[in-house]
Amino acid sequence: MSTRAGKGVASRIAWKRAVWDDDRMAVRVLIVDDHPGFRARARALLESEGFEVVGEAGSGAEGTRMARDLGPDVLLLDVQLPDTDGFAVATAVTADGGNVQVVLTSSRDGSDFGTLVGSCGASGFIAKAELSGARVSALLR
């Protein structure tokens, strides 16, 4: 499924949502994951639930930069990144003092990571297979 097509569907759904609920401000999300397939699906999913996906990054460095530049509310951050791991990025981003909330995700189970999730400043962890807008909202403060 091509990204553009996916993007098209997702954005149409999001526009519909936004027309009906324009009194509600959409949460801005930055997706950081090295799997483009996942990024597309995640965007489609989140946009269908009213989130606004402001950007996608494929590496930790890129994600850190875009987070600085775009100032999203939520960072959906994959733990396995090619250049670094999600915990390091989460630590760096939340240490900045910004009010970005980091949600870690991974194909693996959260219990695999133990206390690392809590100790890096992230707000929580969602397994990729369980990803949904409701879950994300549940983690947000």
């Binding site: 397939g37 699906r41 489609a44 990803l131």
Partner: peptide
């Protein structure tokens, strides 16, 4: 991880989207 798991994850997300 790179193979089967990713596909299943993608499948899971698609299913969720379909559900919505």
């Amino acid at each position: 991880h790179d193979g089967a798991q990713q596909r299943l994850v993608a499948l899971s997300l698609a299913l969720r989207m379909a559900r919505t």
